[in-house]
């Protein structure tokens, strides 16, 4: 396992039009560890992953990966860097016109000149790792949501990336598939020393495997630490999030006028 941060996010500001997503976000992601990034829906967790993979660029502030400022990289260098990244999309994002086998083989066929035999072996190894070797001939349309996610995971790790980004890897999975994915994340981290970043709101499951975590709210980091530190924390942000309480510093309701005024139509007219 490496030492020091692999990814450094430095005072990042970002917004879509007038809607500000991040207002001074800073964090460090250590190499070779599993880092969980948690927060309620709509806090920009997916946007954060898109900033880290260079799909989006911050309005202000910097994202550094392996000591390189992403915004300063040429497209060619960025693409070289991306070959060291694996990205698991929440939707799976499998190519609908290719079979499961060809989906997993896709990065190998694009980036390497390996023989068909070797590609065949590598793809089947990765599919075996996610338990779907038998599904190699199926098309993505024939897979359940959980299976599609596992195929997408096999595709994301087929190039043996240095860092792996998981966007909501557990959403909509049954407990068995959830367990399989969590074990795989730990396994990849332990055997290959892969740096893993998991963006999630499945707090309890992910905290079991994470080495460190950040909680985001309102465009910035509101708490950070190891799972043990977070569970001991008295901080109201952390407590509300970990305990799933509707009342607290994180507003659950969309801003609205006073309920009774709204009911009796004495408030703002619509």
């Amino acid at each position: 396992m490496g030492e020091g941060p692999l990814i450094r996010i430095d005072d990042v500001h970002f917004g879509y039009g007038r809607h500000a997503v991040f207002t001074g976000l800073s964090m460090e992601i250590p190499a070779g560890r599993i880092t969980a990034i948690m927060g309620p829906s709509g806090t920009g967790k997916t946007t954060l992953l898109e900033l880290v993979t260079g799909q989006l660029h911050p309005d202000r502030g910097e994202v550094w990966i392996q000591g390189r400022n992403l915004a300063r990289l040429s497209r060619a260098t960025l693409f070289r860097l991306r070959r060291e990244m694996g990205f698991l999309f929440q939707e799976g994002a499998l190519f609908g016109d290719l079979s499961v086998f060809e989906n997993v083989a896709f990065p190998l066929r694009e980036h390497t000149r390996l023989s068909d035999t070797l590609i065949h072996h590598l793809v089947l190894m990765k599919l075996e790792a996610v338990g779907l070797r038998g599904a190699a001939a199926l098309t993505p349309a024939e897979l359940s949501g959980g299976m599609a996610r596992r195929v997408a995971l096999a595709r994301a790790i087929v190039m043996d990336p240095v860092m792996m980004f998981y966007d909501e890897p557990l959403v909509g999975l049954d407990p068995i598939a959830m367990g399989v994915i969590l074990r795989l994340i730990v396994h990849l981290n332990e055997t290959l020393g892969m740096t893993s970043v998991i963006v999630t709101h499945d707090v309890k499951e992910v905290l079991k495997i994470a080495h460190g975590s950040y909680i985001l709210s309102g465009g910035r980091v509101v708490a950070q630490g190891s799972p043990a530190e977070l569970s001991r924390s008295r901080d109201p942000w952390v407590r509300q999030f970990l305990d799933g309480a509707p009342d607290g510093p994180v507003p659950f309701n969309y801003p609205a006028p006073d309920f009774s005024a709204d009911l009796f139509m004495t408030g703002v007219r619509r």
């Binding site: 993979t53 799909q55 991306r82 070959r83 990205f87 999309f89 994002a93 190519f95 896709f106 694009e110």
Partner: peptide, 11 residues
């Protein structure tokens, strides 16, 4: 998001 997936796979 297949186009995004291709982008992050450096294709």
């Amino acid at each position: 998001r297949q186009i995004d997936a291709m982008e992050v796979m450096a294709v």
